[in-house]
Amino acid sequence: MLGDLLFWVLAAVAVGAGGLVFGCASMARATYALLAALSAVGGEVVLLGLDYLGVVIVLMMTLEMALMAVFMIMFMMSPSGLSPMSMRHNTRGAAAICAGVFGLLAAGALLAPWPERAGRAPADPTRALGLSLMGPQMLTMTVLGMVLFATIVAVVVLATRHGRYDRPPAGAREAARRGGEVG
């Protein structure tokens, strides 16, 4: 009973906040509305009994959205987030696509012949998840980790203005005069 109630409340928050993302004229509001929606999804995952995954979703999304807000404002609002902007482009086309996709997914969820549950949930889903990730899926995880790490390093290398050894000494004004970043 309480579980059902929580499910519906979280579902309403997730959908409502998700909709709000497109209703906000401020990137900061849009990003944090998205965070609210994703946190509600994390709550739903906890309700499924997958505590670890649910809490990790909240943790990761919090950190990601905090950083994403910076990039969203930097690249999408102008100038520097001081004037409002709309999250909606190609309104009619987007609405048609969204309605189509939603209808498709809803029809799939309602009409598909879902299989009966085979076996029982493990006593400790976190442990089962860890064994799966570090067992059969080890290769996937290792490759994924390396690719992500290489991406991070590459992005930092591309973004930084100066090389490895030519960092300006403390208090150097010259870098700032050249238009370099201000520490």
Binding site: L59, T62, A66, V70
Partner: peptide, 25 residues
């Protein structure tokens, strides 16, 4: 005493990121 208490603590402490940034923004 949550089954994933350590991760829970980490997730809640991470909320400081949005909190401070929002207060600044």
């Amino acid at each position: 005493d949550l089954a994933v208490g350590v991760v829970w603590f980490n997730a809640m402490a991470a909320l400081a990121w949005p909190a401070v940034w929002l207060a600044g923004w």
